[in-house]
């Protein structure tokens, strides 16, 4: 048993209650989830299906012609197992319309364009469907900044944001998601052969363990290295967490007036929900 293990039943109960109530606070009772074929979006979709009922959840499949065909197959497997509505929107033309015209070849830039094209579609369909865009970013990737700002990191509400990858796996097994989705190596599938762990240079298991001790338990650098974490690894991860703070905060506003949004104009989003 890992120190990171959660009580999946309790977490499921909390997150379904959270989704129902916070979506209702926005005056809605339906959800839109971009389904990638990966484990995070599968768990988000499964939680939404429990919270709102499968008929109220629209899962959107957003392939690009260079996407791995197994991604779409796995997304369908998840949607079928949940019994949710699906919609397929091929983003190739959207993406290439810009990327080809401007001759963008850097895979990171192309990947970001893909992630943002998907965001554009999800937000548009959220109007058509009358539902809120439910996020799929877990705590590990948010802390590491392994996401595209205003792309996959854009959503109205996020049930996974306080769960490390390890905990997402636990929840996926509890929610009985298809084994194909749980067992495959995590990948953003933004270019051929991509895997998260190769991109990051370390495994999710390593990152989860370190982030949990560093963030949740507030252990210092010295305490972490005394416990056997490699100093270079600790520094690399700590630097990523700090460097990517901008992805976790709203844009910075210069204070000029007596009362400034975000500084001393302080209201929750659930203000008079």
């Amino acid at each position: 048993m890992s120190e990171l293990d959660i009580q999946p039943e309790l977490v499921t109960a909390m997150l379904t209650s959270f989704l129902r109530e916070e979506v209702a606070a926005a005056g809605m009772h339906r959800a839109v989830v971009g389904l990638s074929g990966g484990i995070d979006s599968a768990v988000s979709a499964a939680l939404a299906a429990r919270a709102f009922g499968p008929a109220e959840v629209l899962c959107v499949l957003l392939p690009h012609e260079r996407s791995n065909p197994s991604s779409e197959a796995h997304a369908r497997l998840v949607a079928d197992s949940l019994g949710v509505a699906t919609r397929r929107v091929d983003i190739t033309q959207m993406v290439e319309g810009y990327v080809a015209q401007e001759e963008v070849t850097d895979p990171t830039r192309v990947g970001n364009v893909m992630a943002r094209a998907r965001m554009v579609v999800l937000y548009d369909l959220s109007v058509e469907w009358g539902g809120l865009v439910v996020g799929t970013s877990n705590k590990t990737e948010m802390l590491l900044g392994y996401s595209t700002q205003w792309g996959d990191a854009a959503h109205a509400i996020n049930p996974l944001g306080d769960l490390y990858k390890h905990q997402v796996y636990q929840l996926a097994r509890h929610l009985e998601l298809p084994a194909e989705v749980i067992d495959k190596p995590p990948s953003a599938d933004l270019f051929e052969g991509q895997t998260d762990e190769a991109d990051l240079g370390f495994s999710y298991a390593q990152a989860d363990e370190l982030l949990y001790q560093m963030v949740d338990r507030r252990l210092s650098f010295d305490e972490l290295t005394e416990r056997g974490f490699d100093p270079t690894f600790v520094q690399t991860v700590a630097a990523r967490v700090v460097r990517n703070q901008y992805k976790r905060t709203p844009p910075v506003i210069a204070k000029l007036s007596r009362r400034t949004i975000g500084t001393d104009f302080r209201y929750l989003r659930d203000w008079m929900r």
């Binding site: 048993m1 120190e3 990171l4 293990d5 959660i6 009580q7 309790l10």
Partner: peptide
């Protein structure tokens, strides 16, 4: 606030 969902204990 409800918090603490770790498997070590039962409930919150």
């Amino acid at each position: 606030p409800a918090r603490g969902v770790e498997a070590g204990g039962q409930g919150l």
